Structure formats: structure tokens, C-alpha cells
Amino acid sequence: MTAPNLLVVIDPGARLTDPESVRIARDVLCAGAPGTKVCLPERPEEVARALARRGSRCPVVVGDDRALLRAVRLLHRDRDLAACALAMVPVGPPAGIALAAALGVPTTAVAASRAVLHGTEHPLDLLVDDSGGVVLGTLRVPPAPGPYEGARGSPDGGRDGDGAYGDGARGCVPPGGTGGAGGAYGGGEAYGTGAAYGGGAGGAAGAGAGADAAKWARAQPLRGYRSLARTLARPLPLLASLVGPGAREGDEGHEGDGGAGGDWGPQRLRVEADGTLLADLDRPVAQVSLAPGSDGLAEVVVRRRASDTPVRARAHTVTVSGPDFRYRADALVGGPVRVRTWRALAGAWRLTLPAAPAP
């Protein structure tokens, strides 16, 4: 069997939070595919440049769900998503790699790396919106609190929230965030051969890999009061959700911020699925959820109240409109917007997954 021709893109957050898993993935992939090239990006444009120049190489994302979404979004933007199969080695706490696990990717570095080398390609549906965003798993309007509420980013292609490709000065980020990696691998080359990884002599000292955010944070060096304040502010959105609808976030956000700015309660929304009206502005809607199906149709569920029977539909296009609303697309929160349309695409991307055992 011919060894695959790989381009391994290692997310800076993965290098910071769990360098040991990153090292294992690098070693297994480079040993199984000697011609592997490794990319150590520090900024989003470096990821875009590496993917655009990959040639015949199959991209492998080493990182969390946000890193996978970033790669899919970039390839979709360049109309290059159907030209290659993506592979992934999830690195991060369980909450940060939940999407990868749901898609069938092994969640340990060794098993995932072996699946990259010996797995098979699986065509999958996805949703795309009218701003260039993509949805691989689930979309919800309004966004319920989730594991990424403190490390937000824009699904519309803006700069990832809170230093996903930051300058390192932003400092400690709890598991699930992808921040402050500028000093993590200071000596690493931006793009090169498998040996490029070894250039990162300035490694992420003290970076723990545990899923417990508090334990992880205590293991990190303190990089200034601003960093500490940002870290402590991250639970505020979750606390706001526990207080009740209408509670406002304590974080004022920043450039590229797509966070959930407040109300998670019922909203007056108009929902149309292939022109059929599922909800209108005259009655509040508790939640609208969308997900790619398996036949080129989106699965739509509209819930007015928890006690009501949900309205379900399957459609090629779904449009949600109303007063400014936010939405969670997989691991990212977007908005506010007044109207957004999502379109289902059948078999629009391919993901390498473990080969099925022989009967």
C-alpha cells in the first residue's frame, strides 16, 4: 500500500494545551508517511497559504473542532473543498473535540493518526450560509451556552476570538480555547518538512493536558494581570445562562468577536424551509436547530416551548429572520444578524475515518 502524501497543519492551541499528543501524532504520521510536511501556523493567513499551496497533499488537521472548522471554511471559500479529503487528529479536552468525535474520528492521538494513514474517505453533507460560514454538525438559534462560550470566534470568517492565533501575550486559555500561542513554539518554522516541528525549542512550558480547566490553568505561567482577568472572565457567559434569559455577558468582546451577546430565551423569529413557513414573528420561538442530513437535505426542528411538540422539516434551504439574533454553528457563535440563509450540500466534503473491519 502506497503511503499517503500528507500536509499536517498543527493548530497553535494544540501545541499549547497538549504538546505530548501533538508530538505523538507528528511521530506516527511522519513514520507512516515519510514525505509528510508539517505546517506550524501562528496566524490564520498562514493556514490559508499552506492549504492553497498543498499541491497533491491531503491536509491533516491536528487540533480541536475550531481548527477543523477553520480548514473546512478556508477550503470552501477557495472552492477547493471537493478536491481533497480532510483528515484530523483531535487534540484537546472532550468538550473541545466533541464535533470530531460525533463525526467518527478517534479521539486519541495514536488511533486518530493510524486512521489518517490507513482509513477510508467518507463523503459527508454540510450546510453553508450566505456569508461563507459552514456547519458540519449542529446549528442552534439562539445559541445555548456551550464549551466555547469563553473563547469565541466568528463562523463568518472573521479573526478567531480571543487570540486563537494571538501574540502569546494573551496568556492562559482554558481547554477548549485556542489562544496565545505566539510564544509556544517560538523557534518553529512556518512551513517545512517533518523536521520543522523540532524547531519549536521555545515550547509550551508547563502546559497541562487535563480536561479540568481549573487544574490546567493553575499549571500555566501567569502572563500578566490582563491575561488573568480574561481567564477569570470566561465563565461569565455560562453564569449568565444560569441566571436566566436576558442576562448580559461580562465580556465586552473584541475584533472578530462572534459571541453570544446576551439573551438565550425565546425570540420572535421567522423560519422558512424551502418556502414553507415553520414559524412567524407573531409567536416566540424557544429554539431552532439545523443539521446536515445524509441525502442533501437539512434537518430542521423548531421548538416553541419545551412542552410543545416540535415542528420538523427537511429542506434544501432554510432562512431564519427577525430582530437581531445570534446562532451557534458547531463550536462557533455568530451574529447578530437579522436574516441568514443556510443551504444543504450533499457529499460536499470528505473526511478520512477508520476503515470498517473486514467481515
Rank of each mutant, 00 (worst) to 15 (best):
D160G: 09
G192R: 03
A356I: 01
A315H: 04
T120C: 04
R270A: 09
A260W: 13
V22H: 06
D167E: 12
A346N: 12
A315G: 02
G182L: 11
A313Q: 14
Y191R: 13
D125G: 06
G188P: 02
G119F: 03
P357H: 03
G92W: 04
L345C: 12
A85Q: 06
G250W: 13
R70E: 15
A95C: 08
T17M: 02
P235E: 03
E20A: 08
S56N: 10
A52I: 01
G176H: 11
G35A: 14
D162Q: 09
G246D: 10
D295R: 10
L117M: 15
T276E: 06
L345F: 05
P90A: 07
Q287G: 03
A217Y: 01
A313C: 09
R218F: 03
V243D: 07
G168D: 14
L51F: 05
A31D: 15
Y327C: 09
Y197T: 01
L99Q: 05
A184M: 04
G137S: 12
L297K: 14
G92T: 11
V60C: 05
T2K: 07
V28G: 04
L51C: 07
Q267E: 14
P145L: 00
R57V: 07
V61M: 13
P44N: 01
R304Q: 06
G293T: 03
R343A: 15
R15F: 00
A348I: 09
A98M: 02
A346S: 11
D282T: 09
L81P: 13
L353G: 10
G137Q: 10
L353H: 05
Q267N: 07
A204H: 07
G253D: 10
E299A: 13
V320R: 10
P90T: 08
T276L: 02
P245D: 14
S21T: 02
P4D: 02
L332Q: 14
G186L: 07
L124F: 07
N5V: 02
T319P: 02
G188Y: 04
G253K: 03
R328C: 15
V47N: 06
A83I: 02
T193I: 05
G200H: 05
P310L: 05
A358V: 12
A112Y: 11
D130C: 14
R314W: 00
G150Y: 06
D78R: 10
G158F: 04
V105G: 03
G192T: 01
P354M: 05
A52W: 02
R314S: 11
G265W: 04
G224W: 05
L297P: 03
K215D: 03
S307G: 07
R223G: 00
P354D: 08
D295T: 09
G210M: 05
V301W: 00
G206L: 01
P93T: 06
Y225E: 05
W342A: 12
L99V: 14
T193H: 10
T36N: 08
P359A: 15
P106M: 10
G199P: 06
P44H: 01
G335H: 09
L242H: 15
A306V: 09
L297M: 12
K37C: 14
D65T: 06
L16I: 06
G198P: 00
V271E: 08
G32E: 11
H76P: 02
V47Y: 09
L278S: 12
L277V: 15
S227Y: 00
V243M: 10
L136I: 14
D212I: 02
A83Y: 03
A315F: 00
